Simulated assay, not measured.
Amino acid sequence: MPGTDEATKAITAATVDSFADTPDPRLRELLQGLVLHLHDYVRELRPTIQEWEYAVDYLTAVGQKCDPTRQEFILLSDVLGVSMLVETVNEQGGGTESTVLGPFHVVESPERETGDNIDLMGTGTPCVVSLRVTSADGGPLTGASVDVWQCTEDGFYDVQQPDVQPLGNGRGLFKTDDEGRVWFRTVVPSHYPIPTDGPVGVLLDATGRHPYRPAHIHFIVEADGHRPLTTHIFVADGPYLDSDAVFAVKESLVVDFAQIDDEEKAREYRVTAPFRLADFDITVEPAADEDAR
């Protein structure tokens, strides 16, 4: 009889078996596991044909919303908590905690020198971000790549306002010095809503969830012989730290952007007082054998 437990399990078994000859063993494992969990989901919740058609149409709309400056699938992964789950299960525990990539790492950051200003708009209270990149043993990492991107003080990334912001505003690709240090000038970013003009916005609206992210600055840190790290620093005392729409806040990444009134210190950083200063150490883990392959 159609729809019986035996019939559905036969479909699952046949689908799993169809991938049995996949040459890559990891791809075979991933696909067969996906089939098993997805089929169990269908058996448990028994979506109607109309509901499944809506799901297919929804995912189609997600793909159609993607373009060179907008990644709706990453955004969907973020709001479902999957992005953070993948980051967390891949952590080894020997370095700075990771967070999500987010949907706005979609253009190449311009190469910059330590001390450069990534705020090309020239607005807002000046801010200095000072970083030190080390290995797990505490040794400084010279020549590490630090890719930075952030929104403006009004909560927008450059790619969201092509008629307002120059491309590359709030972005920079830096190299650490002999002490593993790099610093740059910018503005304190704002909290902001993730884009809600697409399918992800429909999901949030249907479920009564807010779209806001707390204020943060993104980093990707790469160094020879070490695992790449994708992380943020979050501005302490800002809103939404306890309800980030993409579940990415970790206590160790919340940083005080202290107000500095010292004019001599301001001259040292080539800004005017008062300014805000965020000082943060980033530790990256040595590459495991499988990372090097």
Rank of each mutant, 00 (worst) to 15 (best):
Y41A: 09
P193E: 10
G208N: 11
T96Q: 09
V159I: 13
G155V: 06
C151P: 01
D78W: 00
E113I: 03
L173K: 13
I49Y: 10
T12G: 01
T176Q: 03
D137W: 08
R213Q: 15
G33D: 11
D21G: 11
R132C: 04
V128Q: 01
A236R: 12
G115C: 09
L141I: 10
P110A: 06
E53K: 12
A61L: 02
G168C: 03
A61G: 12
A236W: 04
D237F: 04
F19L: 12
L45G: 00
H218G: 03
S252V: 09
A10E: 15
S145D: 15
T196Q: 09
E87Q: 15
P162N: 07
A258F: 02
L167Y: 05
I11P: 00
T99D: 08
P239K: 13
R270F: 04
Q64Y: 11
F104S: 03
P25T: 09
N117R: 10
P195E: 06
Y240A: 02
V133G: 00
L38R: 11
L36E: 15
A55E: 12
Y157T: 02
E44V: 10
G102H: 01
I260L: 03
T134P: 03
G139N: 13
G81S: 06
D57I: 00
S109A: 15
C127E: 07
N90T: 13
R270I: 06
V202C: 04
T207G: 04
L167Q: 12
E72V: 11
E29I: 02
K250D: 00
F156G: 00
Y269N: 10
H191L: 01
V42I: 13
R293L: 14
E108L: 11
I194Y: 01
L277T: 08
V107N: 01
E44I: 09
F257S: 07
V202I: 08
K65M: 06
F247K: 06
T283C: 10
E153R: 12
R185H: 06
S130P: 00
S252Q: 14
V200M: 08
H39K: 10
T134C: 11
T230A: 06
E179G: 15
I49Q: 11
H105S: 11
R185E: 02
V106L: 06
R185M: 04
V42L: 15
F275H: 00
R171Q: 10
Q64D: 15
P199Q: 11
D78A: 02
A144F: 05
T12Y: 01
